[in-house]
């Protein structure tokens, strides 16, 4: 244990703890239930949570910079609504995709500008964004709109065969591509490193002459873009657009990012941590559904407890 701790820098420990937790939860499941330890169960974790993985990636940017984005769940709903009604109106699929992504990133840009230019707390601004996006859904339609477009349905139901008879959907591929892109941007570009710098100490970043304004606004654009992309994935998953989709999903995204070891104060964390956080949440849900006798609300309680544990762990790390 000591050799491990010595070899691994302490900044990786929270992420490793999450991964260990995932392995542990999965191990418990495998030991207790037949058929749990199958490749398809793991694949399903990704299939059922692809949109959440994308959301968590975007949220990681915002939280790393020291902000928070409460609007993501509503933007997912808005994106499903734009997708469904656009397709219903006979728009071509590429146009729909562009429209959705533009909507999300524009909303993110607006929120970022208000936060930065007028110095209003991100919490309030993105709360307003949350209301706005959710309200816009209902402005389009109060009812659920189902998606009947052929191309869209084909992509949604297409299965990609992996070795071992495991199948995944295109959603999973996209989600993993987003994670890879997010990692590249965060770790390999000046923008990404500045996100960390701003989260670590905004005044220092400013004195170091880094582009703080671009970063502080940019993270909300990225989060908006990720949310709308997650909305597209969610449309593929649900094959409908509805204003009550993804209610409370912003909390799941925040929880996944925090459980993944990202400090809410900013500056510390990894996209992969968010991915691990999503997988932990997904595994807990799978465990509870395999158990059968445990009711679904235990999921919420367990997530709350996990949040608490990880926050407590982070406190001790920060104090040290």
């Amino acid at each position: 244990m000591t050799t491990l701790a010595q070899r691994v820098p302490s900044r990786f420990l929270p992420v490793l703890a999450t991964v260990a937790l995932f392995v542990l939860a999965f191990g418990v499941g495998s030991a207790r239930y037949d058929g749990f330890a199958s490749g398809q169960v793991i694949a399903n974790l990704f299939i059922d949570n692809a949109f959440l993985i994308v959301l968590a990636a975007g949220m990681t940017f915002v939280i790393l910079s020291g902000g928070i984005d409460l609007s993501v769940g509503s933007v997912v709903a808005l994106s499903t609504m734009v997708t469904a009604s656009g397709l219903q109106a006979g728009w071509p699929v590429p146009l729909v995709i562009v429209a959705v992504l533009l909507t999300g990133s524009t909303l993110g840009l607006l929120m970022g500008l208000v936060i930065h230019k007028f110095d209003i707390q991100p919490f309030i601004v993105t709360l307003a964004g949350m209301f706005l996006a959710r309200g816009l859904c209902f402005l389009i339609s109060v009812e659920s709109v189902s998606i009947k477009d052929r191309t869209f349905r084909d992509v949604a139901t297409a299965a990609i065969e992996l070795p071992g008879g495991v199948t995944i959907t295109y959603n999973v591929v996209i989600a993993l591509l987003v994670v890879a892109a997010a990692m590249y941007v965060l770790h390999r570009t000046r923008f990404g490193r500045t996100v960390y710098a701003v989260g670590g100490s905004e005044s220092s970043a400013l004195l170091m002459g880094l582009p703080t304004t671009r970063v502080k606004v940019g993270v909300y654009v990225i989060s908006g873009l990720c949310s709308s992309l997650a909305g597209l994935l969610f449309s593929l998953y649900m094959l409908s657009g509805y204003g009550l989709h993804a209610v409370g999903m912003e909390l799941d995204a925040i929880a996944a990012v925090v459980i993944g070891g990202t400090l809410l104060a900013g500056g510390v964390g990894y996209v992969l941590g968010g991915l691990a956080g999503v997988l932990v949440l997904g595994t807990i849900q799978t465990l509870i559904s395999f158990q059968g006798t445990l009711s679904s609300w235990w999921t919420k309680i367990v997530i709350g407890v996990l949040l608490l544990v990880f926050i407590a762990v982070q406190r001790t790390i920060v104090r040290r």
Partner: peptide, 15 residues
């Protein structure tokens, strides 16, 4: 006035 969460190299050369 540096960022403790970045590496030494980044703190010297970032920007």
């Amino acid at each position: 006035n540096l960022c403790a969460n970045l590496t030494v190299a980044e703190n010297i050369l970032l920007g």
